[in-house]
Amino acid sequence: MALGFYLIVIVIIPLGLGPNLNLLARIAPGILWVGLLLAALLSAGRIFESDYEDGTLDVIATGPLPLPVVAGAKCLAHWVATGIPLVLLAPVLGLLLNLPLSAFPSLALAMLAGTPAVSFIAGIGASLTLGLRRSGLLLALLVVPLYVPILIFGVSSVTPYVSGPNSLWQPLLILCALSLASIVLAPFAAAAALRNALR
C-alpha cells in the first residue's frame, strides 16, 4: 500500500506543476524524498498497532526478551518491509521526474542510508500514539518535524549531481550517522512508550 501511495504522490506533482522537464529534474530529489517520507509514515502506525490491539504486546512483555530489543526488531521489520521497497521504487519514479541517470547511484545510496532512521523514528511515534483516536494524523504531526534533518541531508546528497559536482560524501555520512544514532536510541524511547501504553 505504501508503494501505491508513493506512486500516486509522484504522479500527482507533475500534474500540478506542468510537464516542464527541466523544472521537474531540478526538484526531483526533493519530491522523491518528501514522497518517501509520507509513504513510510502511512504504514508506520501499524508497527505496533495490531500487537497492541490483540494483546500480543502483553505476552511479549512477560517474555525473556528485553522490550527495547523487541521494539528495535519491529522497527527493523518496518524498514525491511516498507523502507527497502520504497527505496527500490524511487529510481523508477525518478525516471518519471526526468532525474538525470547520473544521479541515480547517489539517490539509491542516500535513501538506503537514510531510511533506517525514517523507520526507527516512526517507531517512536507509533508507540506514543498506540490506541488513540485518529492516531495516524497525530503520528504525522509528531514525527514529521523530526524528519527535517533526514530530508535536508537526503536531498543535499542527491542535488549536487543535478546542478554540478559538489561534496556528496558529507551529507551522506551525516545521513549514516542519523540512522545509526536512531537505531541505537529509538528502541529505548519506543520501549518506554510501549510500557506506558501497557498500563
Binding site: L128, L142, P149, A189, A192
Partner: peptide, 13 residues
C-alpha cells in the same frame, strides 16, 4: 509520560 518521552526525543533533535 508519553509527552515526556516525546519532549526528550525532541530535545535531542
Amino acid at each position: 509520560r508519553a509527552a515526556a518521552i516525546l519532549a526528550l526525543v525532541g530535545v535531542i533533535n
